[in-house]
Design a protein around this nucleic acid. Structure first.
Lengths: 190, 190
DNA sequence: GCATTTGCCTAAAGGGTTTAGGCAAATGCC
DNA sequence: GGCATTTGCCTAAACCCTTTAGGCAAATGC
């Protein structure tokens, strides 16, 4: 029989696409095998188990999102950078809801330490350089930004803002503006 | 054979407890049947299917959380109310991580409209009365509060702040303080 | 006390995960 | 090019979760 040319990378990418189509929690080895027109057991030559697939999709999404954010941040600073970061985040979640979900998968500490999650934290701190915060305020601010962005995007994806005015985009702009003001007030620069 | 005395309510409560113990996504009819020492098929006399169980647990958690928040808010206003709301939210999620997850389950519009989710929105708006915001700012603020609280709690539960200083509780206080300042500045009162 | 309803049962089918063992295609070596 | 080894996909089978169908016995109602 002809070989299908499976690799962990191809399976991961297909899994990410599947996640966007049917939801991250519906990504199964069975569905993936169907997509490649292959028997389920064949996937076990390339993946230890279904958990490894999920982890790989999560790492892939973190990487892809970090790349996008890095791109969006290039050459920007201050509020401009904050808004670019926020938009890159929100846009990714809207374009790739399944991958976004995957990026929120809880990873074990070692895996997380080796993931692009580290770059995310670095980029968040880079934005805060424009606001001149001393520790521990800077850490508090990193956590707050992460919370707001993640919280907003996840509520929006869950449909929480769907059937009410104003538009979710307007509230997003208001939130970003508010965070900018807040961070400027918290800064040590007079 | 003796009857086990199953009811939708008892199954829902046991499901909520199970969620806190093993995670909401691990709540299965099989596990629930084992807990009652009953065959799985017997549960179908009380629940349409496993989705109904999940929905019932979600509604139960929303109700329970709303009760707690209402309790915490009684007799408070302004920053005091904001902090009480925030703490009630965070404490519930830490005490009942599985139920908290359940409360985030996406409900269909009619179910959501009849759920305690409505009370949550009302209470959030009640807090904002202390800050005197005009529309559409008030709606933006409702969304921002929901985002921050949900985002922070979900990142904390996911272990995001675990292996770093300062303590997650300190950042929480900082965030609540920041939100208070922010809302006061956005208010129309001079 | 008897008929009806209700609650839990067995049985079975369908789908996802995972392991064991086999055959054929690809690869490497002379 | 021919042969041995490795690799990739296969079949088979076990286990778990969900859901439906049909049966019997306990509880309920008159």
């Amino acid at each position: 029989m002809a070989r299908a040319g499976l690799t962990p990378e191809r399976l991961t990418l297909a899994g990410a696409e599947l996640a966007d189509e049917v939801g991250f929690d519906q990504v199964t080895l069975s569905a993936l095998a169907r997509r490649f027109d292959v028997k389920v057991a064949s996937l076990y030559s390339h993946l230890k188990n279904s958990q490894e697939l999920r982890t790989r999709i999560a790492l892939f999404a973190l990487e892809e999102l970090a790349d996008r954010v890095a791109d969006a941040l290039a050459g920007r600073a201050g509020k401009d950078a904050l808004a670019a970061f926020a938009d890159a985040y929100r846009d990714y979640a809207r374009e790739h809801p399944g991958r976004y979900d995957a990026a929120r998968l809880r990873l074990d500490p070692e895996t997380a330490a080796a993931s692009a999650g580290v770059r995310h934290a670095q980029m968040t701190r880079a934005i805060l350089r424009g606001y001149d915060l001393a520790e521990p305020d800077q850490t508090h601010a990193v956590r707050m930004l992460g919370s707001v962005f993640h919280g907003y995007v996840s509520l929006e994806l869950a449909g929480g803002f769907e059937h009410s005015a104003p538009d979710a985009r307007e509230s997003w702009a208001w939130v970003v503006d508010s965070l900018d003001t807040l961070l400027r007030n918290r800064g040590t620069t007079p």
